[in-house]
Amino acid sequence: MTTTEAKLVKRPRIPTTYIVALIPVAAALNIVGSTINAALRLPTFLDMIGTAVVAMTLGPWWGALAGLITNIGIAIIRNPVSLPFALCNMVGALVWGYGIRWKMGKSFGRLLILSMFVGFFVSLTAVPIYVLVFGGATGHFGDMLTATFVAMGQRLWVSVFSSNILVSFTDKIISTFVALAILGALPKELTSHLELVEQKNLKTVIWITLGIVVGIAALLFIMFTNIAG
C-alpha cells in the first residue's frame, strides 16, 4: 500500500512509448498540414503544429527532433531540397519548448507573445536560407508581398524578412492555439504537468491574429514608403 501512495505522489515518468509514438504523429501531421495548406491556398505554412505539440508536452529537444524528422520525411516522400528548413522547425521547437518551461503558457497574453517570439526566431533562421539558397523565393504566395517590397525599393533580404515575418506570425499564432487544443485531447498522463491556459475559441484567435498581422503590415508599408520617399 505504501508503495502505491509513493507512486501517486511522484509523477510517473512518461514512458518512452509515448515519446516514440508522439513524435512520428507530430511529424506526419506537420507534413500533412503543409500539404493541405498548399491545397487550400491558405496564407500560412501549417507545418509546425505537431512540433508545437511535442515541444510543449515533451520539451524543447524532443520538439526539435520532431522538426528534424518532419523534414527528413519531406525529403524522402517529396523533395530533398527542403532539408535545410529542418533548422527552422528545430528553432521553433526550442522557442516553444523553453517558452512553456519559462511559464509563457500561463495566460492567453503570454502565449500570444510566445507565439510571436517563435515566429520571429523561425523567420530569423528561414530568411538566410531563402536568400542564400533560394535567391529570396519561397514558392509561397508570400513571394508577391516580397516582390511588392522589392518594387518599393527595399533590399532583397529586408523584403524577404518583412514578408516572411508576416506569414510567420500568422502561422505561429494559429499553430500555437491549435496545438493547445490538441493538448486538451491528449491522454492526461502527458499533459498533467503543464501549466497552460484554458483553450481559446479558434475563431477569436484567428481574428486577433488578423488584427496583429494587418497592423504590422500597415506599419511596414508606412515605414517603407517613407524610406523610399
Partner: peptide, 17 residues
C-alpha cells in the same frame, strides 16, 4: 479555410497517437 481545417486536426491527432 481555417475554420474547417483546424478543428478536424484534433481528433485525427489524438487517434493517431
Amino acid at each position: 479555410g481555417f475554420s474547417a481545417l483546424l478543428p478536424s486536426i484534433i481528433p485525427v491527432f489524438a487517434g493517431a497517437i
